[in-house]
């Protein structure tokens, strides 16, 4: 059967189609992750009206603006406390923070660790493209050692964050890492995160052809995705300190998986009052 040319997509039901096409570069990993999130919303069984999507600032932070749910594009780094407040005021809502590595772990790192520590009932999806993409490819807190960026022209000298390890150490009840190519596993992980009570974290390694691929001679997005395909291994039981990403060492794989899946009472500021009555 030959293809049929059409003008709409079934997943459009979860998007603000009057705002498409989105602003992301060709081959950006945000699109597939958005699709996985949209698919998870549909499969979650939770009505769209009860989803909220919150972001900070950056490329990824534009995602909520395209989602047909209550959406909040807040200030740089501050999405997590904003989302926390929505989740506490409207506990019936499924609140997801969708933002980038620089936003969540550079300027916003303190909020991340404390929300995870509190086990606030929100999901955090982090597109990790190793750089500040929107401002033009500066070094971020996840830029691999030796990798280049406009503010690390000789190669990054700072050890990057190992995000799953960090999230687990702070107390997240669900921690996963996938790439923008592992869309099915990614969708399943987001769905799992939505089903869980408490603070969940999903890192998505994402191609950024302009900010990261180009200065590091990886090439276009498709080449970056091929790099993930070749270097990735799935190991749900991985030893978390081993999850560091080093582009230079070809013998060290990029480890993917659902690494943490535990149950813990989610943050409830009134918990002690409720216990009193028992």
């Amino acid at each position: 059967m030959p293809e049929i040319l059409v003008e709409a997509h079934p997943i459009d039901a979860v998007f603000r189609t009057d705002r498409l096409p989105h602003i992301f570069c060709p081959g950006c990993g945000i699109g597939p992750t958005m699709h996985a999130y949209a698919q998870a919303i549909l499969e979650s069984g939770i009505p769209k009206d009860q989803h909220a999507c919150v972001s900070g600032i950056g490329c990824t932070a534009r995602v909520p603006g395209y989602m047909d749910v209550d959406s909040y594009h807040t200030t740089h780094g501050r999405s997590i406390p904003f989302a926390l407040a929505i989740a506490l005021v409207k506990p019936e809502m499924e609140v997801t923070v969708f933002s980038g590595d620089g936003d969540l772990f550079g300027i916003g790192g303190n909020h991340f660790i404390h929300a995870a520590r509190r086990n606030v009932d929100i999901n955090v999806i982090c597109i990790n493209n190793f750089n500040y993409g929107m401002t033009g490819g500066q070094a971020g807190p996840t830029l691999p050692l030796g990798a280049k960026a406009t503010t690390a022209p000789y190669g990054n000298t700072e050890p990057p964050f190992n995000l799953p390890y960090l999230a687990a150490a702070c107390g997240a009840v669900f921690v996963a890492r996938w790439t923008a190519l592992h869309v099915r596993q990614l969708k399943d992980a987001i769905l799992r995160a939505m089903q869980k009570k408490g603070f969940t974290f999903i890192e998505v390694l994402s191609p950024c052809p302009v900010g990261f691929g180009s200065p590091n001679d990886i090439g276009d997005a498709i080449e970056e995705v091929w790099l993930y395909r070749e270097r990735c291994v799935v190991n749900h039981d991985a030893y978390l300190p081993d999850l560091e990403i080093d582009l230079r060492r070809k013998d060290v794989p990029f480890v993917m998986g659902n690494f943490v899946d535990i149950d813990k009472a989610p943050f409830d500021p009134l918990a002690m009052m409720k216990n009193k009555g028992e």
Binding site: R78, P81, F82, L84, A85, V89, N110, H111, H114, L270
Partner: peptide, 25 residues
Amino acid sequence: GAIFLQMEDELASMSALVGASLAGA
């Protein structure tokens, strides 16, 4: 039955205020 939060800093406090406000609080 109201919510008291001691936040990690004032940046978070103010962000939480805006989030809470737009959630109806």
